[in-house]
Design a binder for these strands. Structure first.
Lengths: 221, 221, 221, 221
DNA sequence: TATGAATGAGGGTTCATTCAT
DNA sequence: TATGAATGAACCCTCATTCAT
């Protein structure tokens, strides 16, 4: 039921000719290497190094992704699809609503969802249909998780998807300058604390108003 | 009582000759400009641009700070000193322990303490005495705030300074790629949620163990 | 009488096996596309783009022409053959000798003979028999035009084929940086002025000495 | 009377602070090297090589000229100024009007005025005041030469500055791909022939209409 | 054979840092 | 001392050419 096909986001519009097998493999390797590098060094990671890590020549990377933006685009798509997949799976598998939410958050952290951060930044993918679709899918899946918990009286009423996703992204964001991967044991503590803050009943009034992902995107300059 | 002198961290080891007044003013301008730039553009902000903002020539920057690291160093010192100052002030001024903690967190966010984040990363300031001193002062001040709340039964028992400071840094960290300053209204929501999670009684068990700032530094590779 | 076969220069040494019809068509398409691109963008036009214009894959281009030089070679052959063909035709069709010369010059300009210019440069086609043959045919045809005008007392005595061909190439050469095709209305004015200068009687003494095409080639380093 | 100051075009708007002597020398060296390279290899000459020839580092070139366009700009200004200077000098020194025109043309050729060609290409320096000024000065000087010859009945009536300048540029333009400097002996022949064509009385009717430099610029796409 | 894909070398540009005034 | 200028290393990207299907 949850096959790889369910996870994979269709990266581009349907192609005229089926791409060659090795080219596809390369493309996947590039995205994987890029995700690693983005997680470790941020979205400014040298493309040449990404290519090296993917085990290909630098120009091959440019054949697949005409510029850095296109690569970031695909990485974001990929990570969003993974996260959405997990959310959709967990909502079905985990009977307790708030536990489901907790499980999703920690799972997303392990998936390095912090690499999504560039997505939130200015003018990213304005109106790109695949990005919009991916965002919508993810939002819907997380909203389902949250709504269930809300209905069960386990989640405070004054929070929305945007609140969760941004905090999740920020708290799992890697420290710059080096592959600071061993922060994980701290990260999960912070997430747990944040989740405790999300639980009903609310312990304080929140400033501002609940945010959707779209709100966030619009907030960017 | 809380004069500027109280805030300022002594930037370097004591000098043989007292520096000229304009040199001091330049140094301060550079640090201020650097803090702004780091907040807006990240720790990779071009040094030439920092110099331009400070209204001085680029080489003058190098006279004051032999390399980028030294500049980051002083910015961190400065921000830590500001944050410590606020913590010390608030612990005195605000009678309610948990309210004091909340006030500190939001104040630190407004002070752009997120700019500290890059500095937490790899091997930063190993064994530099002034950094150690600044860290210690900040830790002590925040610990005072937390201990008071803990004593009052308002703060859960299983968290330490490191947990607060890292989450605070991450949640207030600017988004990459642009000076995304208009995230503030969201940021304060996330901080509030996190603080709710810190409140006693604990709503869940935390993984790992409570962390001091020193622990964090050691975690970096 | 003047069929396509008369125009076409035999592109390579005779092949062992007659090439397939589609291969021949591809070859022709490539040369045509290359000529267009050279005229529009200069001799540095990207080969991939030439292939795209020819409607074939890039590797196919390399199957026909092992490197850029080989392609330039054939384009030069082609253009020379066209020009020679026109000269041969005009010398027969136009009764007035100097009018014939004028007609040839303007016709060659419309044929974009200026694209030949890059090919006159350094060490081009040293001793390639087909190039030598093409050059000889062109030279003979133009010389025929000139000699007739000379005999009629319409062309000054102190000019030779090289003088005409180089000036013709230079004056019709496209401006760099863009396919500046709308210079044509100026180009024909300049050619006309140059032709007026060629008319007998000579209005001035020329420096240097009359040049053949071969002289020009030898002049190249 | 004709000091160096008369020749030099003021390259930029007046600077706030007087530039350092060595920087000025470097700037001049760069322009000189660029002119040479443009003449030899065309306007696509590698900037790194230009820097090498000027005896400076590549980044220094970028300090003086933010991009290739800016460098071409200054080279064109320089060459235009030199040519204008010569025209202004010759019109005074040479009593015979048409001889003056001939002298100017050959002198300009020796000055490598063919490097001006990029100036004519698309969208070059639209509305830059210094370029416009340079162009105007040159045009006025050449027009003076031509008008004098026209008044004396030595120059045909149906030609204008643009006709002369473009033909002059094209005929003296270096062959691409190599420093084909030894074409000179041919170049002067072609110029001489072209000048003969300019002499009154006109030997033929010209197509199109007389062109100013401004017409040419507008003709570019 | 024809092709899409891969590649390495090279050019343009930026930036941290050093030099010379 | 403060500064503008210089520098080389590193990055992004393109393109001629080769490889593998």
């Amino acid at each position: 039921m949850t096959t790889a096909a369910t996870i994979a986001a269709e990266p581009e519009a349907r192609r005229a000719t089926r791409p060659r097998a090795d080219a596809l493999r390369n493309r996947e390797r590039i995205v994987a290497a890029a995700r690693e590098m983005f997680v470790e060094y941020g979205a400014d990671a040298p493309l040449d190094e990404i290519a090296r890590r993917a085990g290909i020549g630098n120009a091959t990377l440019y054949r697949h992704f005409p510029d850095r933006h296109a690569l970031v685009h695909d990485v974001v798509l990929f990570v969003m699809a993974r996260a959405a997949h997990h959310a959709e799976r967990i909502v079905v598998e985990e009977p307790d609503p708030f536990t489901a939410l907790r499980t999703f958050v920690h799972t997303a952290a392990d998936e390095r969802i912090g690499a999504l951060c560039p997505m939130l930044s200015s003018a990213f993918g304005r109106g790109r249909p695949d990005l919009d679709a991916g965002r919508e899918r993810l939002e819907k899946a997380v909203e389902a998780l949250m709504e269930r918990a809300r209905q069960a009286g386990q989640l405070r009423e004054d929070v929305a998807v945007g609140d969760l996703m941004v905090a999740l992204s920020q708290l799992t964001r890697p420290l710059p300058g080096t592959g600071c991967l061993n922060m994980d044991r701290f990260t999960h503590r912070h997430l747990q604390l944040f989740l405790d803050g999300l639980e009903a009943p609310a312990r304080s009034a929140l400033p501002g108003s609940a945010a959707t992902l779209e709100d966030l995107r619009r907030a960017a300059p």
